[in-house]
């Protein structure tokens, strides 16, 4: 690949002009400087690479918040209600005790513990059903058939808290589901008529 008109290459030029050093000292210097160079390059560019990896890794865990659900007085013992998280996930919430404490309540996630699909309630079969692999759960969220039944998995429960007679739930606040604000609602468009004329 050399250009033809070039004179032939001299042998690799002597490494440096200060040839006064004895050969063993020079080879030691060569080895030491090589090591220093390789270590330095590895450490600095390696650190930069680590920063890049840290940048790519999610900077914080999924956002969660304690949300108000209901006054505990409004939930009858044995009764249940459906709560929808800000991200749109459905939560089945039931009251099983009358102590008025957080132990009375159970809040079931609708995310299947098997592989994360969304379960739905089948009232005719009195069970939660997961369409992905035919998993089924009873009213209390215990797996009864399909992969969750075999593995003894239950629907995950959300943390609850009672404070001053009010029930709060800790739920994730983000999801890919984006409410379509432009979807037509019942009746006329509220954003256009803006209520009573001024």
């Amino acid at each position: 690949m050399h250009t033809p008109e070039r004179p032939p290459q001299p042998q690799p030029p002597p490494e440096g002009h200060d040839s006064g050093n004895p050969p063993d000292r020079r080879s030691f210097l060569a080895r030491a400087s090589s090591m220093g160079m390789i270590a330095g390059l590895g450490a600095s560019y390696g650190t930069a690479g680590l920063y890049a990896a840290r940048y790519l890794y999610p900077s914080k865990p999924r956002d969660k918040a304690w949300m108000f659900v209901a006054r505990i007085a409004d939930v009858a013992v044995g009764g249940s209600l459906r709560y929808t998280t800000p991200g749109g996930e459905k939560v089945a919430l039931a009251r099983q005790g009358s102590a008025g404490t957080v132990e009375d309540f159970v809040a079931l996630s609708s995310t299947c513990p098997h592989l994360g699909c969304q379960v739905h309630w089948e009232s005719q079969n009195q069970r939660f059903f997961c369409p992905c692999h035919n998993g089924a759960f009873d009213k209390s969220g215990k797996g009864i058939s399909g992969p969750p039944g075999d593995a003894g998995q239950s629907l995950p429960r959300y943390p609850l808290r009672v404070e001053g007679g009010l029930l709060y739930i800790e739920v994730p606040t983000e999801s890919l589901e984006v409410a379509d604000a432009s979807a037509p609602r019942e009746g006329h468009d509220p954003c256009l008529d803006g209520g009573a004329p001024l």
Binding site: Y51, R54, Y55, S59
Partner: peptide, 9 residues
């Protein structure tokens, strides 16, 4: 503002 080292990159 939020991604780690994002401002640096």
């Amino acid at each position: 503002e939020e991604a780690s080292f994002g401002w640096f990159l």
